[in-house]
Design a binder for these strands. Structure first.
Lengths: 203, 203
DNA sequence: AAACTTCTGTACCTATGGGTACAATAAGGA
DNA sequence: TCCTTATTGTACCCATAGGTACAGAAGTTT
């Protein structure tokens, strides 16, 4: 379970990356350890040397995602500091999908949809991820509010929840329809709604 | 493949219903024919007598859903004829989720999230379902527009897409967080947005 | 009631899933 | 260098997935 050499860390990382991609592509239930082992060019020995079980791997995959988000090394920029940024935040999700010809959804949403009663740990991992993402959005709205650029009775928490839910739904529909259209319109509508909360400058 | 007796039709229906429930609960990939057979108290013989394969069953499950929606015999009322109706439409989704202690998402969204390149038929089945649902929403918006109760430049199609995407995202987040809160707020925000398209009465 | 069809039950089959066991290497550290 | 720990490879294991084959029961048709 422990690692001393760089070699080991590299193979482990490779497995995590390959697994993350397969999970995104076809979901975690449909992805077997074997497939991950083959695709990563490693062996069964390594797999169970580095991960207790399949669930252990899923956990590590999500942890890696989380870390990428918090450290800002993720594929997508999760930091929002302006309305332009927020729009980019929405559009970045669409771009991700487009990169896969609209054949995939959100990496987290995909996993989230598969969880059942037995996957309590995974559910919590996902929750943490969404909590971090939400916080970044909340931070922006709080800042705007502090500068009185938002109506003073808005609920920043709900605004963030709305952002996340709409983008998740948009991506899901985008995947099902294999079209960017519904995603684009949903993003547009969502943004248009959020901007109504901008404070009307006094005179 | 054909059926002459009521007895046969009943067992087949039973299997479809049990399968639909299991798919909703744990997804289609995680549900094996065996599990459906056991839970429905039937046998392997029947299963492959009535369905060509697992995929064939999935198809029939979705067809049954579709029929329930079009004939209005579905668990939920998909007809929207007023704004109150639309609100009920949104809330009905939440109620469905609540009935399962927020441990399940949308029956269609759940299946939709699992589709991959190889499930083209299933994807099309789902598309048909969402198309029918969307049409019911569009019909309402068109009607409102015809009565000049909507601003005349609104895009009814996009409004419907927005409805579906938001409720899908809301339900997904509700399932992941196992909480009705995000669902409720997303619904509220969505409705609030849609109502902004209501025409301002001339004086 | 014969002859057909439809329905149901059981036995079997092969591939894969998720793992364990264990030996062989490689790589450091003292 | 020798000892220890990390890493890798291979072989095996049992349960399940998804399905086929086929025989027998039940229902129809004539």
């Amino acid at each position: 379970m422990k690692m001393k050499s760089v070699r080991g860390t590299e193979t482990k990382l490779k497995m995590i990356q390959v697994a993350a991609d397969l999970f995104h592509k076809q979901g975690v239930v449909a992805t077997s350890p074997e497939e991950i082992i083959d695709a990563s060019g490693t062996g069964k020995g390594q797999f169970y040397h580095y991960f207790k079980s399949k669930e252990g791997l899923i956990h590590e995959v999500l942890q890696t995602h989380l870390e990428a988000i918090t450290t800002g090394t993720a594929r997508m920029d999760y930091n929002v500091e302006s309305w332009e940024h927020l729009e980019r935040w929405f559009l970045a999700h669409l771009e991700l999908q487009k990169a896969f010809q609209m054949r995939r959804g959100c990496p987290f949403g995909t996993v989230g949809n598969e969880i059942t009663e037995k996957d309590e740990l995974i559910r919590q991992d996902l929750n943490l991820i969404f909590e971090v993402v939400k916080n970044k959005l909340v931070t922006f709205f709080v800042q705007e509010k502090a500068h009185r650029r938002l109506q003073k009775d808005v609920n920043v928490d709900q605004m963030a929840d709305f952002c996340i839910a709409t983008i998740q739904g948009a991506m899901l529909m985008g995947k099902i329809k294999q079209s960017s259209r519904p995603v684009e319109t949903t993003i547009r509508e969502a943004l248009s709604h959020l901007k109504r909360y901008v404070a009307i400058p006094k005179r």
